[in-house]
Design a protein around this nucleic acid. Sequence first.
DNA 1: ATGACAACCTGTGGGC
DNA 2: TGCCCACAGGTTGTCA
Length: 269
Amino acid sequence: MPELPEVETTCRGIAPHIVGRTVREAIVREPRLRWPVPAKLNLLMSGARFLSVSRRAKYCLLATERGTLMVHLGMSGSLRIMPADTPPLFHDHIDVVLDDGRCLRYHDPRRFGSFHWLESLQHPLLDHLGPEPLSDTFNGAYLYERSRGRRIPVKQFIMDGKVGGGVGNIYANEALFMAGIHPARGAGRIAAARYEQLANTIKQVLGDAIEQGGTTLRDFVGGDGSPGYFAQQLRVYGRDGQPCRVCQTQLKEIRQGGRSTVLCPQCQR
DNA sequence: ATGACAACCTGTGGGC
DNA sequence: TGCCCACAGGTTGTCA
């Protein structure tokens, strides 16, 4: 479910409700996520006060004065604010109960997400992440330089977390279409000017999606439980067989690295 | 170092 | 209607 815009939407949605609040307790109903949830999460977090909410790639970083809760939503995770006495549903794995009678509830059917407790802002999972796609260091020159000698298809190149922190499948498809680049083209065989284009379309599509509250395909909801509205604006993702919005050519689907790629054979070269 | 691929897990939708 | 398979927004680890 969640790509970078959905994670950003989640962070923005929950921040006003948790910053300044103190944790009453952490309730772990199901610790078997992508990595085991720390057994002593409740001990670590009880009494800690939230200072800020930020994001690195697709990780939410919930900082307290004592340490930082690092949450990944995986494929199907969501974090929502609700009254602490709301009966938990199936797959509501974790509650971080706040001092105002509400809680931050983590729901994740597939359990590909994760909870880590960081004493500092260092963690092996964060160490090798590339620059934030929305930052200035993620630009055409950077992509061009990083891609030299790479034979991997450009779509898989831009989705590599070591290249750019958190460009996911939907937005990789969209950005490549907007830049007119064929997703299967070798990353090392794309000119600097086209990477300039691509860096710009990546920023544009991520920024637009954030403004729309993310993309809700099946089940994504932001911190307040509302869906995102970017799905209506998707140009290629999920539109296999339908006409290109630009040239009317029938969009085609291919598979890359086990993921679905949709492209316009006319507009993308 | 690079790239191909399996693995993790549950739910859903399509085809038969 | 029911069953089985393929596939779904992500990432890591392993192997050649």
